[in-house]
Amino acid sequence: MSTTLVSLISMGMVGSVLAAGLVYASKKFAVETDPTADEIEEVLPGANCGACGYAGCRAFAEAAADGKAPVDGCPVGGVTVAKLVAQILGVEAVEGTHRKVAQVLCKGGRAEAKLHAEWIGPRDCRVAQNTQNGSFKACSYGCLGLGTCVAACPFDAMYMDENGLPVVIEEKCTGCGMCVRACPRDIIVLAEEPQGVHIRCRSLALGKDVRGVCSVGCIACRRCEKECPVNAITVEDNLARIDYDKCINCRRCVAVCPMNTIEYQEGKPVLKKKRAS
């Protein structure tokens, strides 16, 4: 009897002393947190992807609470989160923030673009680009097709197709830009949602050189430039470039492109003018 009692009492006493210590410590050494930042962190996606430019969601929440970061600074959360953050901070949400989606600006997969040799090293574009400039692929500007962007995507929004090109699943893409940073050849860009027309080539090589290595590359023939009714396309350094702010998605360039480099992505409203920036 006495053993049980003694142990109960002694353990109980030790317990209460330690508990008192803990209570004191939690009061005395409490870390002050900004309640607004806590609230903002609650509504953020919590992916900690870093697309906002801060070291994770908490850092962004603190910056937003201090007014250092814009309320629509989270590209992953988009309009919904921007509105919630604005509500918490008691400011007006900026209307018309568009969702950004990653676009792969190369159509030269295994079927279209020539390979000089077979790549037998690690399946990583960064390594391949470091090895003789990725010259196993004949085009020195195009997609190396080893899937570094897919591995970098934190939202599972990309996959490699059978042709060896990355494909963005638009519904899943949050526009965080991790793939853009991962690509050693800079062929992925972020485009705002209603944009449907894309020039899918980054090659600065001369037209005849492009023809020699790829069947879908831009040869800088300038037909799109002439066709465009709003002067959204300019040809510079042997490459047609499109100004997404000017483009009205009329698709006339898509029709005239002899190499099928310019593409219209289905499922977008046609001829809808975007917000004036």
Binding site: G121, D124, R126, V127, N130, T131
Partner: peptide
């Protein structure tokens, strides 16, 4: 393992 390959990536 491709050790040097990735050290080169880091160096660049």
């Amino acid at each position: 393992r491709p050790l040097l390959h990735y050290i080169r990536v880091a160096k660049n």
